[in-house]
Design a protein around this nucleic acid. Sequence first.
DNA 1: CAACTATATAGATAAATATCAATATAGCGC
DNA 2: GCGCTATATTGATATTTATCTATATAGTTG
Lengths: 122, 122
Amino acid sequence: MPTIPIDQIRDTSQAPDISCEPQSIEPRLDTETAGRLAAALKALSHPVRLQMMDILSRGERQVCVCDIEQYFELTQPTISHHLKVLRESGLIEAEQKGLWVYYYVRPTILAEIKELLSGFGG
Amino acid sequence: MPTIPIDQIRDTSQAPDISCEPQSIEPRLDTETAGRLAAALKALSHPVRLQMMDILSRGERQVCVCDIEQYFELTQPTISHHLKVLRESGLIEAEQKGLWVYYYVRPTILAEIKELLSGFGG
DNA sequence: CAACTATATAGATAAATATCAATATAGCGC
DNA sequence: GCGCTATATTGATATTTATCTATATAGTTG
């Protein structure tokens, strides 16, 4: 009695012997960097957060949350959530002055992403 | 009888009359562009897909799926899924030759993203 | 301290995503 | 057409995410 089902045995009698001429490619993006930059890109990958980055980068100084809110038809907790995502990714930073919190862009990771994309041919 | 519950009526008798000196900021990123570029960024925002972009951009020619697979410990359908996400976002394109499918980078949207990030101060 | 403000957090829920196993599609060689 | 190959699609499931309502935190004013 066969212990291996007949349909799991490969019949290679007619297997073609051609291949796709493999290239040997040396990746330059290691797993750690890929994970780190993918996390920053994920923070950027939402229309509201992109527009927040735009607003922050266009302000002449740090921008108050109460100003940011004006541009979106979203509840205050949702605004707060998006700002937190951006801040935790390192793309922006916050400074509290009394009751108000002011946000501003941190350019470091943005520059890293731009360099990565340049390497992709963009 | 009051129709509005008492705890919803604001007592403004002690409201401070200061504000945070609002800036008027002119956003330059419209909603349509934000949505389009956010979608492309989302496609990029996964470590595996970033590494795929790296591999495709480092190949001397278009890269066969069977070559791409070698770099990841993922099943073939998962590889196929990630390539599809990248292709549907416009970041890469595919060409079939016989049994094999070859992928390559499309630089247009990458360049658009880079320009956006430059505007953010990256 | 009491009333108020600006912002953040918690909790709930609906929608999107990553992955796998199983299956389908379609090209090639005999 | 048959048997094989490379790639794509389907379907299931676990995880993550975006949004809201409700509540908490903490600074300010009087």
